[in-house]
Nucleic acid binder design. Sequence first.
DNA 1: GTTTATTGTAAGGCATGCCTTACAAATTGT
DNA 2: ACAATTTGTAAGGCATGCCTTACAATAAAC
Lengths: 140, 140
Amino acid sequence: MKNITSGLEDYLEEIYIANINNKPLKGAELARLLNISRASVSEALSRLVAKNLIIYNSYETIQLTALGLEEAKKVYEKHNTLKKFFETVLEIPQKEASENACKIEHVISQNILNKMAEFIDFYEKNKTTLEKLRKENSQK
Amino acid sequence: MKNITSGLEDYLEEIYIANINNKPLKGAELARLLNISRASVSEALSRLVAKNLIIYNSYETIQLTALGLEEAKKVYEKHNTLKKFFETVLEIPQKEASENACKIEHVISQNILNKMAEFIDFYEKNKTTLEKLRKENSQK
DNA sequence: GTTTATTGTAAGGCATGCCTTACAAATTGT
DNA sequence: ACAATTTGTAAGGCATGCCTTACAATAAAC
């Protein structure tokens, strides 16, 4: 009853992002953003309502419940950490970093995310040293 | 017709591992390894046969086709790279590293995997320096 | 206020992927 | 050879998650 599938997490995340940007979000717009049919969104929103993650009345703006907000934030933060890690440490281009983060955010453990965040911190604090080292390494 | 779902990739991987270890693998054993019912395995094997990834006749050993071997290897290598990256760079315990690799291997891009492999290499060649740096950092 | 556009959803479909039950077929042990 | 074990699978179910078609309800534009 509590467990959220990765599909639903995607909906939550998108709703959350709309929230942050103060863009009122209706089902049809969500369908456009996620590139799926209105009918599918309609079903998904019902599931989200059933799980007490959103408040939704037809033709009105979709709203996150406290629980939904919490979950959405988690996913969003996971996404960001992954993206940043890929960009900073692995030098992956933005788009690819983001696309991969979208998928991995649903399956990776919190512990690894924390370690990634730590590593990003470490990497940035020692950027000069590390980049010099890496350059040397690649020349050998 | 070509695309393989992550579910099927798991089957392939397990078959491949049995192959490596010279352990003849039948459906029932696969069911035990993956912790699912024989019936589900039976279905999955049909799908794998249909996709020309395995050769399978009831009551005989499951065999990979050339195509299946290729796919299985890819997944297996992804798994190993991920696991090693988590263990080496992020200091994640073996079990957790492996569990996460199992899920991420199905969704991550080859390019990121390559960068991870490179980074592992760099990290190991400069282990002493890097670990000293990290220790200093954590004390601040 | 009425037409037009947007939004929502019911109905019926399809694939994946898992389950249990129950029986059939093959293999093993003695 | 025959019984016991193992293996395979058909049938019927369930949930997720996507689709299209077609219609209903609401909102926006004129």
